[in-house]
Computed example of a mutant assay.
Amino acid sequence: MESGPAIFAGAAFTLFGGALLLWTAVRSLHREPVVYGGAPRTAAALTALSGAAVLTLGLWCFGRV
Rank of each mutant, 00 (worst) to 15 (best):
P5N: 09
V34M: 03
A12Q: 11
L57W: 06
F16W: 14
F16H: 11
L59K: 10
V35Y: 08
I7T: 12
A48F: 01
L55I: 06
T24L: 00
A12T: 14
T14P: 07
F16C: 10
A25Y: 00
E2P: 14
A43F: 01
P5C: 06
A19F: 11
F13Q: 08
G51P: 00
A6C: 10
G38C: 13
A11N: 11
V65F: 01
E32C: 05
R64Y: 12
A52Y: 00
G10I: 01
P5F: 05
L55T: 08
A53L: 08
L49Q: 04
E32R: 13
P5V: 07
A44Q: 03
T14Q: 05
V65I: 07
L21S: 03
R64T: 14
F8N: 09
V54P: 03
G58Q: 02
P5Y: 06
P5E: 06
P33D: 05
R27D: 06
A25I: 02
P40G: 05
L29M: 09
R41G: 11
A44W: 00
G17L: 00
E2N: 13
P40V: 01
R41D: 08
T14S: 15
F16K: 12
P33C: 06
A25F: 01
W23S: 08
A11C: 11
A43R: 04
S28R: 09
L57F: 09
S28A: 10
T47C: 04
A6P: 05
S28V: 05
T42I: 13
G17P: 04
G18L: 03
V54N: 01
L49K: 05
A19N: 09
L55R: 04
L15P: 07
G63M: 06
A6K: 14
W23I: 04
L57D: 06
T14C: 12
S3D: 14
A52T: 04
V65M: 07
A39Y: 11
W60D: 15
W60C: 12
P40E: 02
A43G: 06
P40W: 02
V54G: 03
T56E: 12
F16S: 12
S28W: 05
S28H: 07
V34L: 04
A11M: 12
T47F: 02
L21G: 03
L20I: 07
T56H: 14
R64S: 13
L15H: 09
L20Q: 09
A48D: 01
L29Y: 06
G63N: 07
G18Q: 06
G18W: 01
L29G: 15
L20A: 11
R64N: 12
F8V: 15
G58H: 03
A53Y: 02
G4Y: 15
L22D: 02
V26S: 03
R31I: 14
L20M: 11
A44T: 02
R27I: 08
A39H: 15
T42K: 10
H30S: 15
L21M: 05
T14V: 07
P40K: 05
F13G: 06
L15R: 09
G51N: 00
E2M: 11
W60A: 14
H30Y: 09
G37W: 02
R27P: 00
P33R: 05
T56V: 12
A11V: 12
M1I: 09
A39L: 14
G38P: 04
F8L: 15
V34S: 01
A6W: 10
E2G: 15
L20V: 08
S50Y: 03
V65W: 02
V26C: 03
M1S: 08
P40N: 04
L59Y: 08
V54Q: 02
A45Y: 09
